[in-house]
Nucleic acid binder design. Structure first.
Lengths: 98, 98
DNA sequence: CCTACTAGTTTGCGCCGCAAACCGGTTGGT
DNA sequence: ACCAACCGGTTTGCGGCGCAAACTAGTAGG
């Protein structure tokens, strides 16, 4: 079992999933954003986006804050420090592997 | 929906799966190899390896040839031309996305 | 013979991504 | 005042997938 193999098998599966990789990549650039922005930017439907965000929250990679914009609910998302590190680590490993 | 997002969502899911990425990466380097070599090199168990290989065969990325080494069966694997292209394409896209 | 081993394949399970259905609240029409 | 339509998400259900345990067909050893 060579080093390349080991590197690939250590990839973070939470981030590796393309849907979540997209989310995390977007969040990495903007620091703080709302659900609807992500919805349009990712091109996903609401259910898919919501469940990926929950999974990222469980992993401690994304922080979800619910507020109101006037009277309509608004969900704000940001990448946690641990999420930023996880993405950076993921990118490093991937480049190393390819 | 920006370009980075589009690139990620176009990633080939057959290759994206880490188990298969490992297999394809190994095959890319060696041209032709048997099941047991892959088994040891990947660190997978036989069932996992077998099913990933079947999936890669269905996708047209790997060619599976069954022969005998003396009296014991031997399964030989090679990356098809389309498999090579798929991996190259996958790598390009991924680098582009990160 | 008959038990153990080799070289895989198949089965079964549990998790996951996905979209349809749902839900609490708000706005607009009459 | 009512109620239908809409907004901003969440939950449910389903199909597919990765994984390892169980199985299979054949070989070798005692």
């Amino acid at each position: 079992m060579n080093q390349q193999v080991r590197t690939i098998s250590e990839l973070d599966r939470v981030i590796h999933e393309p849907g979540r990789l997209i989310i995390v990549t977007l969040l990495y650039a903007v620091e703080r954003v709302d659900f609807l922005y992500l919805l349009h930017e990712t091109g996903m439907n609401k259910g898919t986006l919501s469940s990926h965000l929950s999974r990222l929250e469980e992993a401690g990679y994304v922080e979800i804050a619910k507020t109101f914009r006037g009277k309509v609910p608004q969900t704000l998302l940001r990448l946690s420090p641990s999420g930023r590190k996880a993405l950076e680590r993921y990118r490093r490993k991937l480049k190393e592997a390819l």
